[in-house]
Nucleic acid binder design. Structure first.
Lengths: 277, 277
DNA sequence: TAAGTTATTCTCAACTAGAGTTGATCTCCT
DNA sequence: AGGAGATCAACTCTAGTTGAGAATAACTTA
């Protein structure tokens, strides 16, 4: 991105400008990082090493480097999310796996007293990754781990009210809940599921991604037909997997992500009807 | 929302906590307020009364009241958006029209030098309203008006690069572009279009909303059938409009919004195929 | 080798979407 | 007043999509 050039006659104004005139607010980024392990959806959590909420699990995240008046150290929000993710997982931010994972902004949470220390606005990001190595605690985290989402007992009502879910600090239960809903929706109309797989995958592997995220079983035959019929979703490699199904069956064929950015027509969740009203 | 209670043994920590340790950032809200006038989509814009970008058009918005250490004046982000919208339009924030318009968070924009004064993070909101009165300039705005979206000459490429569209200040062309895309998508799978209409509307009126936002004509017969077939989208009042079509035709029937929160099956844009890759 | 599992392909009925048609009702113009 | 043209609402027809089930072949494990 280029910078909008301030008008020339604004220079005097800018010199006299005092940022402290406006209420200062701290801005953090929090990351909902999702992956699939053993067929189940997992989220990356860290255990807080200091107050507030010391000892509780939380989403990885931290303060955005604002850069001060000189703007020297300033970073974009998405860059801050990548940095936090790298710090917490011990993976290097440049190149490597982290450079290829899908990252998108989820939303911003700024309720007045969501952080007991001060006014903190948190910009949440959603990350999808193929299986990543176990994280190593770093930064302020006492511990870090991939936690099965099911084990958190997130319900609609529990996630809405911060404090009722004692498992996650701040309003992170709510953020995680929003992230999961976003992920479920995105699988419907984008080829995002391929971001959970490696470079090559089979249709049944892709189906297991959908089943893990949506939490329901899909009709194997219809799923297969649908995936192949959506233009640009997947692309055949011509190869077959070197191994049959884990409990028997023929060797499935291998595919890689296609060039579509939207799925049309979309793959709709079977259970969608229940949540219409 | 209730407040997460800090742990008791955190009190000493909180007393010594200095917010200034972290880089201060200012947070603003900007609102993309959309309405339909004369069959065309309009956005609410204000002309900036002071630097930076003095004299240029911008989205209505302003600094969030952070509330300082005491937190007395703190407001939630959505509340700030409603306040800014009320200030710029001259409508009262409590009750009345503004209480009923649809408001949702669009995204957060925080590129390092998007504001020449200092590090500013802007949380953008998207608002949909039935036809509102002409705004009166208020706050820092020199002028305010509903501007036809078509007249802004927004293109994909122009919106991406701040500064290239000299019509809008900051990165507001990009924010507006994202807002329009969000609105177009939301019409597909939510009954949002009814928020552009008043309490009662006809099917052709609803269709004109879709046509204005999507920028393409729809098949009247199929649209009619589709709207009536989606459960909970609209609900008949049993009445008919007191006037026929503007250029002849029978009196159309009146409907009000139904109780569905998602449309299933969705109304898909005809032109979607072109933007798949 | 037998039994069980899985990938892939088919079949069939129900449903959905796009395009066009029809008939009634209204406005506007002459 | 009468006719031309526009519009609403309902209907038809066809092509395509979806969901459920079944058939076939390729593999693993006991």
């Amino acid at each position: 991105m280029t910078t909008p050039e301030p008008e020339r006659d604004e220079s005097e104004f800018l010199a006299r400008y005092d940022p402290r005139e406006y209420d200062p607010v701290s801005v953090t980024v929090d990351v909902v990082a999702l992956t699939i392990r053993d067929g189940a959806l997992h989220v990356l959590l860290v255990r807080r090493g200091g107050p507030p909420y010391e000892g509780m699990w939380a989403l990885p995240g931290g303060f955005v480097h604002a850069g001060g008046p000189a703007g020297a150290d300033a970073e974009d929000l998405a860059d801050a999310a990548v940095r936090e993710l790298a710090e917490e997982t011990g993976l290097s931010a440049k190149g490597g796996v982290i450079g290829r994972i899908h990252l998108e902004q989820l939303g911003t949470y700024g309720a007045p007293r969501r952080d007991p220390r001060m006014r903190v606005i948190s910009v949440a990001y959603l990350a999808f990754a193929p299986e990543l190595p176990d994280p190593e605690a770093g930064g302020d985290a006492a511990d870090a781990a991939w936690v099965p989402v099911d084990a958190l007992g997130l319900t609609e009502s529990a996630a809405q009210r911060p404090g009722t879910t004692r498992r996650l600090a701040f309003d992170h239960a709510r953020i995680l809940s929003d992230g999961l809903e976003r992920a479920r929706g995105k699988l419907e109309y984008t080829p995002l599921a391929t971001a959970f797989c490696g470079g090559e995958f089979t249709i049944p592997e892709l189906r297991s991604v959908y089943e893990a995220v949506w939490g329901e079983e899909l009709h194997a035959g219809n799923f297969h037909r649908k995936v192949l019929s959506v233009p640009g979703f997947v692309e055949s490699t011509g190869e077959t997997s070197d191994r049959g199904g884990r409990r028997g069956g023929p060797r499935p064929r291998l595919y890689r992500p296609g060039d579509a950015r939207l799925l049309h027509p979309a793959l709709l969740r079977p259970s969608r009807e229940e949540q219409i009203r």
